[in-house]
């Protein structure tokens, strides 16, 4: 289903479950690939470093990170924890697959986080869209970027 229409900016509201409380807004950074913490990101720059990752070299610092979730080592939370201490954490996390890695990681990164959305965020949200996440209300409001 392609709900994006041309020209006019469009707003879509998704409903989901709070993982970490809070509200944030910003530009979306969307990847269809899970992210590794230990061995997958540079915790000083917030950049994905995994070889063959579609986001390799891209920083999630200050972005609304939209992704399937976590993979890899049990050091996931510790590495995202360090991004917060270094001030390069994402502003919020929207994800689709719950695991202990992503749950603990979102908690210690201390950013609003949401999952179990009623539409697939990975297909509804595109990189560059403006996203308002209100985790307590369980809503994600997406304003599509203007098409060029």
């Amino acid at each position: 289903m392609d709900i994006v229409t041309e020209a006019k900016p469009e707003t879509i509201v998704l409903k989901g479950r709070k993982v970490v409380a809070g509200r944030a807004e910003g530009e979306a950074l969307v990847t269809s690939e899970t992210i590794s913490g230990w061995g997958g990101i540079n915790e000083r720059t917030g950049t994905v470093i995994e070889r063959r990752h579609e986001m390799r070299g891209v920083s999630f610092a200050g972005k609304i990170l939209v992704f399937p979730g976590a993979k890899g080592s049990s050091g996931w939370s510790a590495y995202f924890h360090m991004t917060r201490l270094n001030g390069v954490q994402p502003q919020a996390m929207i994800f689709t697959r719950m695991t202990t890695k992503i749950a603990l990681g979102a908690v210690v990164t201390r950013v609003p986080a949401i999952t179990e959305l009623d539409q697939d965020p990975l297909s509804v949200i595109e990189t560059g869209d403006w996203v308002v996440i209100d985790a307590d209300a369980g809503t994600v409001t997406v304003t599509k970027k203007k098409s060029a």
Partner: peptide
């Protein structure tokens, strides 16, 4: 056990 982390 689940895969736990440093904090948990």
């Amino acid at each position: 056990t689940n895969v736990e982390g440093k904090e948990s």
